[in-house]
Design a protein around this nucleic acid. Structure first.
Lengths: 240, 240
DNA sequence: GCCGTTTGCGAACACCGTATCCATAGAGGA
DNA sequence: TCCTCTATGGATACGGTGTTCGCAAACGGC
């Protein structure tokens, strides 16, 4: 429309008006869905405009009628996956609710391994992302009426969750990129790790590898989450 | 032969174009340094093999004599920046030391805005990265002799730091990508935020935007870090 | 049935990472 | 001094990428 043409060049992607397809055109949702399917199955590297178009049996250039470019497509993908599962129900118990929110965010990030990579360096301001944040703020409001404190609490929990998942995903991603099986990859890394340990320059790291029992990812996640929530509880008590 | 065939026939032998003189070899460190400089100044998107070669006055293909490919170059860049500042000195006070480590990691991530993006989906196993981890483990060992617990503690702190920095960097990165100034970007986002708030569908988020005082990034970081460390202290006490 | 608009998309452009291949510089032997 | 041999720099090419342009075909309102 002439209206949107007159708007500043940087109308935010999530509030842009999308035109409806005349015929059996791809439509934004179909494009986003196809792109997510590709990224889930084959990784972000396999996600190209041509590939999406091919999966939709459409011409590459046609996609640009519905999506401004790859970058915008990525933004839309992020918001789409954040909306695919409704936010967890709240009980009013702040700790249980924030735990639920944290697990929910973690599950989403794990379901789409490309998501955390894409989320670094890209603020999530889509409707679904904001819904998640709103729910988290509601949960934290049961702890304190102070919205500033609640916001800090939510940000802290989300930061931890994101970092923890990114750490867990890193190895998996590297392995996937190498194209090796999990065992092959482990074997290819082992000699290097042994060399590092044998150098004697990293005594604590060596001790960790040799002696520490490595728990399942969920357990490590829950440990850290419990720490964070403990700390929040202590701080909220002190403030009130 | 092929040369003279391409040249016009009248060009005499002594005026024929001679091969460019050999230049000095780039060496791995120079390549990595140049790549980091580009990524720091212009972002990861501007980092291409051709660009690095151009900055070094060398041919693109020459880089491959020293580096296996772009992927390996990125791994080397990560380890290089993790080694550019020595790890913070330790005092033996676990809380002070872990705080120092956390601030150190944060400073490194902020100094190189591309680092966090690259670190998601890439385990850091370089010598310098391992040194950082070893120091962190040493700090945590003052809290507990249990290496498993110490490892969990370090992982938790690192996860929080990473997530917190990624969150802070996201907006900056998006703005940089848009090519607008900070003010322009803020102005382009404002109408959308207002629209979202006016919709009434996100009451807590609206309250946050309207009422919460947004602290400086450092303060938010320190708040969350304090929570995490409080929780760790509580948990370590309970375990012993 | 016509006409202005919307839509699909082939082709082209400017890049990208990387492999191949060859001329040459420099070292070492004669 | 010359020659040979090898390691190295880099031009070139290949198969991708995101994106733009311009045109033909389809559609909706008249």
């Amino acid at each position: 429309m002439a209206d949107s043409a007159k708007e500043p060049a940087h109308v935010l992607v999530w509030s842009k008006e999308r035109r409806a397809p005349r015929r059996q055109a791809p439509s934004v949702e179909q494009i986003v869905r196809a792109a997510i399917a590709i990224a889930d199955a084959e990784g972000l590297a396999a996600l190209s405009m041509r590939r999406v178009a091919a999966d939709l049996d459409s011409g590459t250039a046609s996609l640009y009628r519905y999506v401004a470019g790859r970058d915008e497509l990525l933004d839309l993908m992020i918001d789409a996956v954040e909306g695919e599962t409704g936010p967890p129900p709240l009980s009013g118990d702040w700790r249980a609710d924030l735990t639920g929110v944290a697990r929910h965010v973690r599950a989403t990030l794990l379901r789409h391994p490309w998501l955390s990579s894409e989320l670094t360096g890209r603020p999530a301001l889509g409707a679904n992302s904001l819904r998640q944040q709103d729910v988290a703020l509601t949960a934290a409001s049961a702890l304190t009426p102070d919205i500033t404190l609640a916001a800090n609490v939510v940000d802290t929990v989300r930061a931890y969750v994101f970092g923890a998942v990114a750490r867990d995903l890193a190895e998996e991603q590297a392995q996937r990129r190498s194209g090796l099986t999990e065992d092959q990859w482990r074997e290819s890394v082992a000699p290097y790790i042994r060399e590092v340990i044998d150098s004697g320059a990293y005594p604590q790291f060596a001790r960790r590898v040799a002696e520490a029992e490595d728990a399942a990812p969920e357990e490590r996640f829950e440990f850290g989450l419990a720490c964070v929530l403990d700390g929040i509880a202590a701080r909220a008590d002190a403030a009130s």
